[in-house]
Write a protein that binds this DNA or RNA. Sequence first.
DNA 1: AAAATAATGCAACTTTGTTGCAAATCTACC
DNA 2: GGTAGATTTGCAACAAAGTTGCATTATTTT
Lengths: 140, 140
Amino acid sequence: MSRGFTKQAEEIILGRAERVTRGRVQVLAMLLEEQRAVSHHELEQRFKGKHRLDRVTLYRVLEWLNERGYIHRVVGDDRVWRFRANFDLKPHQHAHFECTRCTRVICLDDLKAEYDPPLPAGYRSQEVELRVRGLCPGCV
Amino acid sequence: MSRGFTKQAEEIILGRAERVTRGRVQVLAMLLEEQRAVSHHELEQRFKGKHRLDRVTLYRVLEWLNERGYIHRVVGDDRVWRFRANFDLKPHQHAHFECTRCTRVICLDDLKAEYDPPLPAGYRSQEVELRVRGLCPGCV
DNA sequence: AAAATAATGCAACTTTGTTGCAAATCTACC
DNA sequence: GGTAGATTTGCAACAAAGTTGCATTATTTT
């Protein structure tokens, strides 16, 4: 992981005067570096060697980052949460693509705000997500 | 559960000359009766008393019904599958509403075919789902 | 009605995520 | 820079949802 992302992550957290810890910085840096939604399991792998981080702590770091809007999470058809850095801090309105073969999830940011659906009476919308499932370029 | 749905379920399965079993008929009948997406857990409850059905069998029945397109499934933010009868047999293009308070899921059928998103090059769409999260009338 | 085929029930297991609590770490303050 | 106080971490144990293997039972075919 490049030093640049680590520094950026550190600054992001410091910017809100919140507690900076190795775990938070490294996880956020990893997610900033990746441009896609990454699962807990994948992140866990990277904390195996030198920079060990407990899996429970990893869950808690991800939860913490999510609550504060630094990242967001999507659940895929394999019932696994995937996390991705928020590059802008606008409210959630996402489009995701999920590959039905390799289960990879990518975020289609450009589709974000295009849908404003009419709901039945009495329902209140808080968040809209468009999920497109299909084959990614590597799996077609 | 009314006899009408049982009969309808039976006919649907027989119509494709597939094996008719008590579990399949009853589960499909339940889902035909409900107009919403129901979790495995909820269905399991109803098989507690007289008409007992093993939870593993229930999983397998749901899988079977799903594979054949009699029902479809959605995963909610609680990472739980919910199942719903398919009233038409067109390919999947759904809109779902998920209540962030009571986790209930309803299907917004009328929004079905309204979205045909442009994907990045190389991606192939198989299925589109629009998920709206918010509060249902009972939770507003 | 019997044989062949498929579904069911049970026990054990896996995966993903949570909770409680003592020990370690971080920040603010002197 | 060192210390007090509050947070975070690691560990162990737990929980929920779903899966697998296999012997038994039910459905369909002949």
